[in-house]
């Protein structure tokens, strides 16, 4: 096996791939990247058995073949090279690879490609087509509402993708707040529900570019793949019953307060500096005395701030009923996004 790369192009492709590889995994090969040169294409592949990334790299194949190289060392070498071309080739000793170019030669331990886990073949119907930009944006704007870590309600650590009537609905909730986004789909799809781990989506969000390139999502049993021209992103799906979110989205919140989004966010951040209990989340309290009678409603400041910094409208609306029922926070021109936040009883 022998492949020629341009440093800059390799580096761009390498970083999302090497992020997935985890050198601390008990299975040593999972710390490696599979480099595959076949049928005129160079692929870089990594997986942690839950997420898999496959990217097509621009490279010139001198000799076909496949080998795995340690992700961390390999990407560090590439990052630190000056702009140049380089050659990745199997050593005479087949358990080593050479990375060499003008004035440098690195020899790395390699593991045979046969030992690398095989990523699933997901065929079947394309269920969603979205632009890379839209998907990236959607992920950013709801991922924070998912429960951190799997805890013991794993399904909440994922994001629901639900398709019904030409609409894709994305929902994330940790049981205290909820983010929901409705995306109209250009053509009709069959009805479907799948929960994708937030961790995987976060990784996907980092990898996707702000482009109009179409992302296809394919679902098969307990696997999902997102496909682009030079990227395939595999992830398992989460088992379990996603809570019935529709029933808790309030329909009769009649009180509304509209706030300047950035000013409100800045205020919250400033107060947080002075909050005494650093280890504790902060509260934000809205105290009304005239319009709604004497009413105080309090929220976890982080929940509100998460919405504020990720929304885009100049103003945001907070719709509520009383100090204990769920409130809706959303951009005031926004129609597709909704955030539900449960108040804090004081």
């Amino acid at each position: 096996m022998k492949i020629m790369f341009e440093k800059r192009e390799l580096e761009n492709i390498l970083s999302p791939v090497s992020r997935i590889a985890d050198g601390r995994n008990a299975l040593a090969i999972l710390g490696n990247i599979l480099v595959e040169a076949r049928e005129g294409r160079v692929k870089l592949i990594s997986t942690d058995l839950e997420i898999g990334v496959e990217r097509i790299a621009k490279g010139t194949i001198v000799e076909e073949g496949a080998i795995t190289v340690p992700a961390a060392v390999f990407s560090e070498i590439i990052t630190n090279l000056k702009d140049t071309s380089l050659e990745l080739a199997l050593n005479e000793n087949a358990s080593m690879v050479n990375v060499q170019g003008d004035g440098f030669l690195y020899t790395l331990n390699a593991l045979p490609a046969e030992e690398f886990p095989v990523l699933p073949e997901i065929g079947g119907e394309t269920v969603i087509c979205l632009s890379s930009k839209d998907l990236k944006d959607a992920i950013r704007r709801l991922i924070f509402a998912a429960a951190p870590g799997e805890g013991n309600n794993p399904v909440l650590s994922g994001v629901l993708f639900s398709i019904k009537d030409n609409h894709l609905t994305l929902v994330a909730t940790d049981g205290r707040r909820l983010a929901k986004r409705v995306i109209p789909l250009p053509r009709s799809h069959r009805e479907m529900k799948v929960v994708i781990p937030a961790k995987a989506l976060q990784e996907l969000g980092k990898t996707l570019e702000d482009s109009e390139e179409i992302v296809e999502m394919l679902v098969e049993e307990n696997q999902v793949v997102f496909k682009l021209a030079t990227l395939r992103f595999y992830t398992r799906v989460l088992e379990g019953q996603f809570p019935d979110y529709d029933q808790i989205i309030p329909k009769t919140n009649t009180k509304r307060v509209t706030l300047h989004r950035e000013e409100f966010a800045a205020t919250l951040k400033r107060t947080a500096i002075m909050a005494k209990e650093k280890e504790m989340p902060k509260l934000v309290k809205l105290v009304f005395s005239k319009d709604f009678g004497d009413l105080t409603i309090a929220f976890n400041a982080k929940f509100v701030l998460d919405v504020l910094v990720n929304e885009e409208d100049e103003y945001i609306d907070i719709d509520f009923k009383d100090s204990v029922s769920p409130a809706i926070v959303k951009g005031n021109k926004e129609t597709n996004w909704i955030h539900v936040v449960m108040p804090i009883c004081t």
Binding site: T173, G175, R176, R177, L178, P243, I248, E277, M280, L283, A298, N300, V324, P326, V340, M342, P343, I344, C345, T346
Partner: peptide, 19 residues
Amino acid sequence: EALNRRRESRKSLSQGLLF
């Protein structure tokens, strides 16, 4: 101590659950 302070000031804070 944080919980005790809340209790003493009669401001037990409780996070409502959506579900």
